[in-house]
C-alpha cells in the first residue's frame, strides 16, 4: 500500500511535466502578449523591447520554459507580471475560496443525489423513480452558466433576493460567507448531483439483484439493513469513481461560476490573468489545479482498497 502510494506519487512527475509544457505552449500560442496589453498598440519599439527584456520574453522559448520550471521545482512560481506579487501566494490565497466552493458543492450534491438515487432504485419504474431520473437528466444536461443566470433572475425578480456582493471569508463571518457561497455551490453541484444520482440508482439496482442480498434477507434483515449496510457499501466504488471524475469538472466549473457570482477565487484569478496574458499566474494556477485534481484521484484510488478487501495494491 505504501509502496503503491509512492509509485503513484512518482507517476505524478511525468503527468505534471506534460501539463506544464502544454500550458506553457498554449500561453505562447494565443494571439497577443503581455507587452501589448500593458503598453497598448501605440508603444514604441524601444519601450516594447525594454519591457520584453525585463520579463525575459526576448530569450528563446526553451530558455523561458527552463527559467519558469526551474523556479517551480523549488517552489518559486515567479511573480505576476501585472502586480509584481508572488504567484504562489496569490494562488493559495484564492484557492481557499475555490476549495470551499468545490467542497460545498460536492457535499450539497451528495446529500441530495445519493439518497434520491437510492430511493429511485428501491422504487424503480414508479413515478418517483421517473421523477428522479428526469431531475438527474436535467442536472447533467443544463449548463451551469445558464442555471446560474436563471437562478439569479428568479431570485431577484420574484423574491427580490440578492446574494451579498462583497466577499467575506469563512473565518471572518461564517453566516455571511455561507450566504454568498450557497447559490454558486448549488449551481456548481447540480451537474455532479445529476451524475451521482444516475450512478447511485443504477449500481444500487445492480447490487440489489445480487445473490448475497437474498442471503442477507434470508438471515432476517430489515430492508434498512439490506440497503444501507450492504447495498450502499457495495455500490460505493462506482459512485466514488464518478465523484473523483466530477471533482475535475467542478474545479473547471469554478472559473465560470466565480465570474458570474463575482467571487474572488482561483478561477477568477486565472480568467483575469488570461485576459492580461499574465503568463506566470496562468501557468502556475493551471499547474496547481492539475496537481489538486490528480491528488484527489489518487485519494479515490486509495479509498477503493479501503472499501473493497478484494482490491489490494502492491
Amino acid at each position: 500500500m505504501i509502496a503503491y502510494t509512492i509509485r503513484r506519487l512518482l507517476m505524478l512527475i511525468p503527468v505534471l511535466f506534460g501539463i506544464s509544457v502544454f500550458i506553457f505552449l498554449i500561453m505562447k500560442m494565443i494571439p497577443g502578449d503581455v507587452v501589448s496589453t500593458m503598453l497598448g498598440t501605440e508603444a514604441t519599439d524601444e519601450s516594447r523591447s525594454q519591457l520584453e527584456k525585463q520579463f525575459g520574453l526576448n530569450l528563446p522559448i526553451y530558455q523561458q520554459y527552463y527559467n519558469w520550471i526551474s523556479g517551480v521545482l523549488v517552489g518559486d512560481f515567479g511573480v505576476s507580471l501585472r502586480t509584481g506579487k508572488p504567484v504562489l501566494g496569490d494562488i493559495l490565497n484564492r484557492f481557499t475560496l475555490t476549495l470551499e466552493l468545490t467542497l460545498l458543492s460536492a457535499f450539497l450534491s451528495w446529500i441530495i443525489a445519493i439518497p434520491l438515487g437510492i430511493i429511485a432504485a428501491i422504487k424503480r419504474n414508479t413515478s418517483t423513480d421517473f421523477g428522479v431520473r428526469i431531475i438527474s437528466l436535467l442536472g447533467v444536461s443544463v449548463p451551469n452558466f445558464a442555471l446560474a443566470t436563471l437562478l439569479l433572475l428568479i431570485l431577484s425578480v420574484f423574491f427580490s433576493y440578492y446574494p451579498p456582493s462583497t466577499y467575506v471569508s469563512l473565518v471572518e463571518d461564517p453566516v455571511k460567507n455561507l450566504q454568498m457561497m450557497i447559490l454558486p455551490s448549488i449551481v456548481l453541484g447540480t451537474a455532479m448531483a445529476g451524475a451521482v444520482m444516475r450512478m447511485t440508482r443504477s449500481t444500487v439496482l445492480e447490487v440489489l439483484r445480487q445473490d448475497f442480498i437474498r442471503t442477507i434477507r434470508a438471515k432476517g434483515a430489515s430492508e434498512r439493513v439490506v440497503i444501507f449496510n450492504h447495498a450502499l457499501k457495495n455500490a460505493m466504488i462506482p459512485i466514488l469513481t464518478i465523484i473523483g471524475m466530477q471533482i475535475g469538472v467542478l474545479l473547471g466549473g469554478t472559473v465560470i461560476i466565480e465570474q458570474i457570482f463575482s467571487l474572488p477565487g482561483l478561477g477568477q484569478l486565472v480568467l483575469t490573468a488570461i485576459n492580461q496574458r499574465d503568463y506566470p499566474v496562468v501557468q502556475g494556477a493551471v499547474l496547481f489545479i492539475a496537481f489538486v485534481f490528480v491528488m484527489i484521484n489518487l485519494i479515490v484510488d486509495l479509498l477503493y482498497s479501503y472499501l473493497d478487501p478484494r482490491i489490494t495494491y502492491k
Binding site: 445480487q210 445473490d211 448475497f212 437474498r214 442471503t215 442477507i216 450492504h230 457499501k233 457495495n234 472499501l307 473493497d308 478487501p309 478484494r310
Partner: peptide
C-alpha cells in the same frame, strides 16, 4: 443457496 461464490457479501 446454490452459488456459494456469490451468496456472501464480498465486503
Amino acid at each position: 443457496f446454490q452459488e456459494p461464490m456469490t451468496a456472501l457479501d464480498p465486503l
